[in-house]
């Protein structure tokens, strides 16, 4: 049942030009960044060769690429998640799901998986691009994998936050702006954490970025993984609660 909903969601996305435009823009932008980092590497190469314990091709090209992509996707994900529930609410199609023999949890999970599948699709070119370097050299596959895992977890959190915000309103644009604000805030929360001492640990812990960076360095820490999983599941639970509250007295 969840997959039926997810498939419908994915299908509707591809039936509008939006999905194609986003895919094209993301691939184009990332390809540009990729070439930029290769150029940088070629410039640095003579100096790197001389230095002892110098960063390799993965450190100079793949890690910055993943890091930049994450920022770009932060801008794009709100556009994908904004319609999830709010559009259904606005065109009053939600009652189709509400009167069908499915639970609210199934609706939310279906929606989440639908948009998450699309986001993964968006990530494929970004993930594959660095592999082209294998033709001329060697890349650190462990670092590549951990960076990719970081991206997947990060995007899943973006989607779950976007989904929750979308359940709060009937206006897709409002959902998009609110999601964007929230994501950006969570992204840069560690800036406040690094300046002051008091409570900086908490702010640092809450930041999306501070759990992504270790993975980009190839550090696989269960704290980071659990942080993402907790964030995703709490957003999904909140969404289910919010959707359920639609039927209650208010």
């Amino acid at each position: 049942m969840i997959f039926t909903l997810a498939a419908r969601e994915l299908r509707s996305m591809f039936l509008s030009p939006m999905a194609w435009v986003i895919l094209a823009v993301i691939s184009g932008l990332c390809a540009y960044f990729f070439l930029l980092y290769i150029e940088l590497y070629l410039q640095l190469q003579p100096r790197l060769a001389a230095a002892p314990n110098a960063p390799g091709i993965t450190d100079v090209i793949v890690v910055p690429l993943f890091s930049t992509t994450a920022t770009v996707l932060l801008l794009v994900t709100p556009l994908l998640t904004m319609r999830l529930i709010s559009e259904e609410r606005r065109s009053q199609t939600l009652s189709l799901l509400m009167s069908a023999p499915i639970s609210m949890t199934e609706i939310i999970l279906g929606k989440f998986l639908g948009v998450f599948a699309f986001v993964l699709l968006m990530l494929v070119p970004v993930a594959v691009m660095p592999l082209s370097l294998l033709a001329g050299g060697e890349i650190d596959m462990g670092l590549w994998a951990s960076g990719l895992l970081g991206q997947v977890l990060l995007l899943a959190s973006f989607c779950s936050i976007g989904l929750y915000v979308s359940t709060l309103t009937a206006q897709p644009t409002v959902a998009a702006v609110a999601t964007f604000g929230l994501l950006l805030l969570l992204w840069v929360l560690n800036l406040a954490g690094s300046t002051s001492n008091e409570g900086s640990g908490v702010l640092n812990y809450l930041s999306l970025l501070s759990h992504y960076q270790p993975l980009l360095k190839g550090i696989f820490s269960s704290t980071d993984i659990i942080y993402y999983l907790l964030l995703i599941s709490s957003c999904l639970v909140l969404s289910v609660r919010r959707l359920d509250a639609d039927r209650l007295q208010h």
Binding site: R8, S91, S95, L96
Partner: peptide, 11 residues
Amino acid sequence: LPELPPLYREL
């Protein structure tokens, strides 16, 4: 069938 038929217009 609600007052406004719940249709996905893109399908």
